[in-house]
Lab assay of single mutants.
Amino acid sequence: ATNIVGKVKWYNSTKNFGFIEQDNGGKDVFVHKSAVDAAGLHSLEEGQDVIFDLEEKQGKAYAVNLRIK
Rank of each mutant, 00 (worst) to 15 (best):
G47M: 06
N3G: 09
F17M: 06
Q22L: 13
Q22N: 07
D28M: 09
F30L: 05
V31M: 06
T14A: 14
A63Q: 00
D49Y: 15
A38E: 14
G6H: 01
V5D: 07
K15P: 01
N12F: 08
L44Y: 02
E21C: 05
L41S: 07
S43E: 09
V29R: 06
G47R: 14
V5G: 06
K9L: 08
A38S: 13
G47K: 14
H42E: 13
V31Y: 05
G59P: 04
Y62S: 11
N16K: 13
E55F: 09
E46D: 10
V8W: 03
K60V: 07
E21K: 15
N12L: 09
D28C: 04
H42N: 12
K15Y: 12
N65Y: 06
A39R: 04
A39E: 03
D53S: 04
S34P: 03
I68E: 15
E45W: 15
D28Y: 06
K9C: 03
E55Q: 09
F19M: 06
A35L: 03
W10A: 03
S34D: 07
I20F: 06
K15C: 04
K27P: 08
K7L: 05
I20W: 00
L44K: 01
I51M: 08
G40F: 06
D37K: 15
K57Q: 14
K27D: 08
Q22E: 09
N12A: 09
A1S: 11
N65A: 08
V64G: 06
Y62D: 03
Q48P: 02
N16G: 13
N12D: 13
T2W: 10
D37I: 13
K7A: 15
A38D: 08
F19H: 02
A61D: 10
F52K: 00
G18A: 02
V64I: 15
K33E: 04
K7F: 07
G59C: 04
L44G: 01
V29L: 04
K9E: 01
V50D: 00
A1C: 04
K69P: 03
G26F: 10
L44W: 03
E56V: 12
F52E: 00
V5R: 14
V50A: 05
